[in-house]
């Protein structure tokens, strides 16, 4: 009698395990999000007390990466483009130009983290 319920629970746990196992498979998107998470890990403590940050990425897909950055950096509010915030997070990728709203001379570099696909640079307004 109880065996029936146990079998059901075991099968359900196996299903959970197979899902867990499956999500470890890497897709382009998961690699991207994982790398952003890894990249900003060391930068986060420097942003303690801040509630917003400008986000710039020199990638043709900047708009899309912005959502991933917001997901990783929440509860920090991530502004797309240079919106006059104290800090700016730049994600460097390939050789595309940065958003035209960004003026390098207005900022100084605080920390740089280099990963496989992206470089993460935290800039502070002078």
């Amino acid at each position: 009698m109880i065996a029936k319920r146990l079998i059901f629970i075991i099968i359900l746990l196996l299903c959970f395990y197979s899902i867990y196992d499956h999500i470890e498979e890497e897709t382009e998107k998961t690699v991207q999000i994982d790398e952003i998470e890894k990249g900003v890990k060391d930068l986060r403590p420097l942003l303690k007390g801040e509630d917003k940050i400008s986000f710039l990425a020199n990638s043709p897909e900047e708009r899309k990466i912005h959502f991933e950055a917001q997901y990783i950096l929440a509860p920090l509010i991530v502004h797309r483009g240079n919106q006059g915030d104290k800090y700016a997070l730049i994600i460097e990728n390939f050789n595309y130009p940065l958003d035209s709203t960004f003026r390098m001379e207005e900022f100084k570099e605080v920390k740089r983290v280099e990963e496989k696909r992206f470089n993460f640079i935290l800039m502070e307004r002078k």
């Binding site: 999500i23 470890e24 998107k29 998961t30 999000i33 959502f67 997901y71």
Partner: peptide, 14 residues
């Protein structure tokens, strides 16, 4: 299971 993605689709993480 075969259609699951770690962070879900667009609206999931956005």
């Amino acid at each position: 299971e075969t259609n699951s993605i770690k962070y879900g689709r667009w609206d999931a993480y956005a």
